[in-house]
Amino acid sequence: MMNFDYVRPANVADAIAAASEQGSTYLASGTNLLDLMKGGISRPSRLVDVTRLPGLDRVEHLSDGALRIGALVRNADLAHDAEFARVYPAVAEALLSGASAQLRNAATVGGNLMQRTRCAYFYDVASACNRRWPGAGCDALKGENRLHAVLGWSEGCIATHPSDFCVPLVALDAVVEIEGRSGRRELPLEVLHRLPGDTPDRETALEPGDLIVALRLPAAAKDFAAHARYIKVRERTSYAFAVASAAAALRIENGTIGEARLALGGVAAKPWRACEAEQVLAGKSPDASLYREAARAALADARPSGNNAFKIELAQRIVVRALTLAAAGTPARISALPGSPFSSVAGA
């Protein structure tokens, strides 16, 4: 491994100063970053370890009803917080459907948001990849791409964002709190990840030195507690990234959908909020044909980026399932197979 500096700043201001320099990168638990370094995909000259920064490992209830989750809160701790899981069940389910118990114990909230794509060509330094090397080309485009994006991709990059956690978060209008060189700002999670367009190497809206300090779920996110699910189809029962996934959250009033939230995972370079589908659902009474209509709306713009047309069909079915299960009501406890189709009663 190449030699690099390692610094452990005492506070956020020092961290930002250290990370603003060329070649510096934040290190959280390293479950993604260290693998990238071992493979030579990331070669930072300095690691700025944020895991000891004070005050970022707390979950706070704000006076306006929002929930503020520090960037260093561990994925497992958040998901296993019973109160959190009760109020934001789809988020807990998504977290627990990801990776393995060991990884979730280590992984941080900030690291999960900022994890990189799992595109195999991105990981293979001998392959051409615009994300790693702007202008190099994209070897996935004519390669093994059955699991690549069907929404929002460009000829420049067809990779997906792999996070499960982000999918219900984006549906619930989560906000990212950032400290940077020019102070504090916030961004809707919706705009944190960028679609590739002509600049796939610019993966997020963060600037050099920007540190995610917290994630905020606004008060309205609580309204969906009774009807929220995350469904993730994968190629083995656990410990696999999503082929495709969906988070559905409904506010049901007097048998009618007052408001719907819907997002998809594993289909685009960002967690994909399906606003048109939400419009289709709003104000209607929940039923199977409505879900199918919503699913069609969610995938209306989808196109295969390679050998992956099936994902368009599959994603629609996942949407229908997620809506069906959300409408049926959040189960009293998260199943032993979180997010798995096998954790739930099938629609049929």
Partner: peptide, 11 residues
């Protein structure tokens, strides 16, 4: 084996 009738996941 069990197969999800719409999603196709197998166990």
């Amino acid at each position: 084996v069990k197969v999800d009738p719409e999603l196709g996941q197998i166990r």
